[in-house]
Design a protein around this nucleic acid. Sequence first.
RNA 1: GGGCGAGUGGCGGAACUGGUAGACGCACUGGCUUCAGGAGCCAGCGAUCGCAAGGUCAUGAGAGUUCGAUUCUCUCCUCGCCCACCA
Length: 858
Amino acid sequence: MAGTRPFKHYEPKWQKAWEEEGVYRARDASPADKDQKFYGLIEFPYPSGDGLHVGHPRSYTAIDAVARKKRMEGKNVLYPIGWDAFGLPTENYAIKNRVKPQDATVKNIATFRRQLKSLGFGFDWSREVNTTDPAYYKWTQWMFLKFFTSTFDETTQRAVPVPVGAPRLSREAGRPEQAETTHLLMYGRPGGSPKQEETVPRLAYKARTTINWCPNCKIGLANEEAVGGLCERCGNPVEKRVKEQWMIRITKYADRLLSDLDTVDYLEKIKTQQVNWIGKSEGAHIDFRISTGDAVRVFTTRPDTLFGATYMVLAPEHELVQQWIHDDKVANAREVNAYREAATKKTEMERQAEGKEKTGVVLEGVMATNPTTGKDIPVWIADYVLAGYGTGAIMAVPAHDERDFEFANAFSLPIVEVVRPPQPVEGCYVGDGAAVNSGFLDGLPTADAKQKVTAWLEEKGLGERATTYRLRDWVFSRQRYWGEPIPIVICKTCGYVPVPEDQLPVLLPDVESYQPTDTGESPLSKIRSWVEVRCPNCGGDAERETDTMPNWAGSSWYFLRYCDPKNDSAFADPEKLKYWMPVDLYNGGMEHTTLHLLYSRFWHKFLWDIGAIPNEVGPEPYARRRSHGLVLAKGGEKMSKSKGNVVNPDEIVEQYGADVFRVYEMFMGPFGEPVPWDTNGIEGVRRFLDKVWKLFSGSSLPSVTPELDTLYHQTVKKVSDDIESLSFNTAVSQLMILTNAFVEVGGVPKEFQEGYLKILAPFAPHIAEELWRDHGHSSSIHVSPWPAHDASKIVASSFELVVQVNGKVRDRIRVPADISEEDAKARSLASENVKKHLGDKPPSKVIYVKGRLVTIAN
RNA sequence: GGGCGAGUGGCGGAACUGGUAGACGCACUGGCUUCAGGAGCCAGCGAUCGCAAGGUCAUGAGAGUUCGAUUCUCUCCUCGCCCACCA
């Protein structure tokens, strides 16, 4: 009978009481008592206008259950919550509805807060953080300045301050005549030619780079906002545009981000995804002499195939191509220029539509020399060579690389096989006499051949061993309003000047219009009163940087702020960081594995390098990372507003209460797998909790039977273990089994009552609390000690011995638990049914599996 | 194309280091209770043969190892996610 369990009465009552009693308040303590703490973390939500989705609470309930158990085990638990509130969705919403993003954010947060509170999560609300709060983003800006004033020491592989007295940065960088200034501006690709490399590689720098540009919305988009080559806002195809952007040199940390994965407990698939994203390849850089007098450096993982390099390909954007055209070295400059232009204009859509069809243009009049054969080879440009990877140029070995093979076929280029050791591309036709057996590599296995060629290159000064990463530097600029202003002042004489720390935060000005501009500048650029400032260095006329930070900035360090959220003189007190960090368990979506998770690991390492995070904390922020599966709509498809299949948690809480919602979220399927939402399934959970309620409203007190005793202790053990391994669905099903057993005997034996409520408490905290306090307790069940199981009682006194004949079950015999092997075999062989199936033939083999079965073969 | 993961009743899913396949829940069927019920209670519920006792077949397909395979090995098929011309 619905309504017998008055959840609408007791749920809000206990939510209020928990807050007043400070049940979930985390207590700061001395780092010496670190082993007493537990820091559980969920990815803080983006407070969108749509409110909470049933997907959010899956993760929150799971970690809540773990946190509750840890608390009951005596741990000092930190389970915080906050808001990741800067970013595009709110800005779009604000523009569309003609409201201020600030106001929309306040409203959205209020909705989220109300919804989360109605679900009874054990968050420590006193530590709530908000990335859009100036008191928070002051520190985000502070950290940006730390990146800006730091460089990377290659020998120690750590961030260090830019040397005092280092030449000031110039806006005119990149021009040789300004060589006396340390230039921050780096034109072209990260890792470009030495001439354009800044002399002090700051960890935050400005570079000219290609971005996704939506011609319709007139706005620059991040890669993740232009998925599939379509603008997230309007759905139109995006094109490439070159823009000056702030970049963060995350690539310097590639190796550490990779190797430190060995020190943390992450789900294996999370590790592999990070490893693949970082994409380390080892090989060699080889310099090819060019007829123009230049040298072109290529990267290859197969230096052993150098003998077979019959042509060379540069990315269309390669800066030497531009220079050669400029210097009149290219005979077919028109054609080459046309190809280059087409390549940059090509939208992501068009590129994908083309598939792997190879296109390209030869540079007439430009030749390269293969250093091993001394032969002249042609130089091409083609868009299958990516500007952003390696050196943006390749040596093409068509016999041993499929892409080069396709290209060579398309343009009738020579194919020369290196006879040993590499295997040629399948279907590769090698013309008469075109195979090279250098003798040099005779009989060597590939790895040795690579080594030998690399050594030869190094000896001759033609190249060197090299490691390349697929990871790119982090584009850190957004030309938008709703983000942290980048705290830099641009001065004509002093260049890029950091805003002095005591002037932080650089407040986001409160204005009326957030419309994007026609030029692709941030809307902030139109607010002249904000833009125009005095240079902090020379006092002259200067302008503020008008780009803002991406929404990944604030989320890259929020877990640190939770340790000390109200600190105004530091982002967090080092002593508190020492106590709370690292995070013991962090759960979040797989979609954040290569973005947020990687960014925040990097950010943490950087702050640790510069001593902002105490050494004791260590270089990794998260000790254990797990991932939940998506909550899908009923048919198994994704929930989305456009499909109208989104389930709002409010409705469920209204109808069934928070506990039913929470238990269902945990019971619906394995935590790590995607599961469709099923309204019928909720009914089952409702019945379960109604049974619990009725068990305690009845007056009968059954006595303990041995079976019940065993089951109770088994349940305590299973629930305890399952919470540790995040197997919540089986924990709930075990609780159901025990509950059904209690229903069977008409009530809960007195000695099990409290333990039973306690193991239920992590999942259904309200009903457990109500029944607990009803038992006369004045303090919360959630701070009561977690029950222990009695191992001796888990083993039943007897068990059903299964008897198999030739692999098939033929009998089951109840035997004492401590039956001897001999006895078990004898009793099995005595079974009538066994005899029947054995027939005349004597058994050739009898095997006893302790506590389970006897199997007989003949 | 590459990487990772997964295929078990009508459905979501259980099954310890190879040892009773289908726990728990949903749906469904029959019965009880009720003025009535989308409430509650009892019973049944993989397929198949059989009145029954009891067989036989079943964990995507096919092989293999084993006394014994959802679990281990190989081949193939399907689906999901991520990355996709990364030299």
